[in-house]
Design a protein around this nucleic acid. Structure first.
Lengths: 117, 117
DNA sequence: TGCGCATTTAACCGTATGGGTAAATACGCA
DNA sequence: TGCGTATTTACCCATACGGTTAAATGCGCA
């Protein structure tokens, strides 16, 4: 993803790795340190740091500082934007079927009238 | 994404590129051929073919055949799964705030009673 | 059979991901 | 100041992405 990737690009990309989704799920329970996030993943700490960078770039998380710990916090906005995009697509897509249904209904009405004469 | 990427991995990865999201939005209006999908994108046809492969792998689209055209059709299931994952996360995350609110409300009640004596 | 059109495959290139290990930082504390 | 812990940075490596152009394939039709 080049230099000019959009917000949504980065959010969906961040969601496209199971380790990152696991970290987000964990962060849904509340703040966590890097070590706490890394523990269940079975990958090295530097690998976790890289995943965190991907999620920070997508603004899915923010970091604070507490002594030598740098806790991560979930930011809901981008998640809302992502599912918003999907839901919008589904809305349009389902709307298309509704209109098709209406159209077929209208056709049926036509045929009914034709049958009547 | 390696050999063992999960369904959700592939769906989110497919959504992480603006050209692919544009193609999905177009497919929300109904079937389209490769040429029709490529036209507004300003990239070569082989590039479009590769994007289509990514979306097929994610099962976001299916293909049929009509003479030399191979029209694409949107498949809604994986989109539902993807926004379902996000909504589930948000549900948990918001539930956490509800519980925090309840907790704070209970604290306030405590303090009120303390003030009363 | 051979032409024309739509699409894919092959080959190549540059950059990004995702992983590792080893070394460097940052901070609290004795 | 020096030690210990948490985290990041620096490199290195293999593979995937995203794009290109040129060649191959699939299909209808004269």
């Amino acid at each position: 993803m080049g230099k000019y990737a959009s917000d949504l690009d980065m959010v969906f990309l961040a969601l496209a790795h199971p380790a990152r989704r696991a970290m987000l799920a964990r962060l849904g329970q509340g703040e966590a340190t890097v070590g706490e996030l890394a523990e269940p993943l079975g990958i090295s700490l530097p690998a976790v740091t890289k995943h965190l960078k991907v999620m920070e770039r997508a603004k899915l998380i923010s970091r604070s500082r507490n002594a030598q710990w740098r806790p991560c916090r979930l930011e809901a906005g981008p998640l809302t934007a992502a599912s918003g995009w999907i839901d919008e697509q589904r809305r349009v897509w389902e709307g298309r079927f509704d209109r098709l249904e209406t159209y077929l209904g209208a056709l049926e009405g036509e045929e009914g009238r034709r049958d009547d004469r």
